[in-house]
């Protein structure tokens, strides 16, 4: 599904990713862990096409296509979704309207029929109920006045509605209490299928208890320094990053 080869990227002349290689086969969930500043969020942004980052080397294929050659909206249409660590506020823009416009843009690009207002609301209500979100969240302006937890759940709602093939979750668990964490994990688990993959960026083992990954990768200073099964996350939780990062250095 996703194949990252020796990817290097920088922002303002500062090298952040220094040769990342990673394969996420269809149907798998991979976790990216690592200390602050190791490049985890940058990886998410580069995959989604943020223009502030300059790719200086390597390649990424997504479903066989050259991901780096695509505009951000083309990546979304191709089935990539980034759940932001800090979702942006859009004052005056109604959440339901935003989601419907996004969904229909993606459907158009995929050659599918657009959903009318009624059809969309039915879908949105079903999904938001499943995520235990209050109905009024659809009526409010995108992320404006949302609590940290509400913003994260709104990201998961968007993901559920847009139905990506690959979701990159950038610390979606940070700032969530245990109940909210479970709701978010359930939201991702509900999408799990042989056609859905996820790259879960997190600091903590906690989320991975609910969202068991197939593989865990440890990122340090812009490189993957270790990969392993779910047990690697538990080892990190017990011993910290120091051992792993020092081993690699």
């Amino acid at each position: 599904m996703l194949s990252v080869n020796n990817l290097a990227a920088r922002i303002d002349e500062k090298e952040i990713l220094r040769g990342i290689s990673l394969d996420v086969p269809a149907g798998q969930v991979h976790a990216i862990m690592g200390p602050n500043g190791s490049g985890k969020s940058t990886l998410g942004y580069v995959l989604a096409g943020h223009e502030g980052y300059e790719v200086t080397g390597g390649s990424v294929t997504f479903g066989g296509a050259d991901l780096l050659a695509m505009e951000p909206e083309e990546r979304a249409a191709a089935g990539l979704f980034l759940a932001f660590q800090a979702p942006l506020e859009l004052p005056g823009v109604n959440n339901a309207n935003f989601l419907r416009t996004a969904l229909n843009a993606v459907r158009r690009a995929r050659g599918e029929a657009e959903l009318d207002a009624v059809g969309f609301l039915r879908l949105a209500r079903t999904e938001s109920k499943r995520l235990h979100m209050p109905d009024d969240m659809l009526k409010r302006n995108v992320n404006v006045g949302f609590s940290g937890g509400e913003k994260k759940r709104n990201e998961v709602l968007q993901m559920a509605i847009l139905r990506p093939k690959l979701a990159v979750l950038d610390e979606t668990d940070s700032g969530l209490d245990i109940d909210a964490l479970r709701i978010v994990a359930d939201g991702v688990n509900a999408l799990r299928s042989p056609e859905f993959s996820a790259l879960v960026i997190t600091h903590h083992q906690r989320l991975l208890d609910h969202l068991v990954p197939d593989r865990v990768h440890v990122l340090s200073r812009g490189r993957i320094v270790r990969s392993g099964g779910p047990e690697l996350a538990r080892e990190l939780e017990a011993n910290g990053y120091a051992g792993v990062v020092a081993d690699a250095a």
Binding site: L88, N97, F98, A105
Partner: peptide
């Protein structure tokens, strides 16, 4: 903000759609 536009585009909206949404929200 550029980041607001990027956020919209990462959801599949074209830049035009994103601007339209934000401006109409503003007005």
């Amino acid at each position: 903000a550029d980041d607001q536009l990027f956020y919209c585009r990462s959801r599949g909206l074209s830049e035009e759609d994103a601007v339209g949404l934000i401006v109409n929200g503003f007005c």
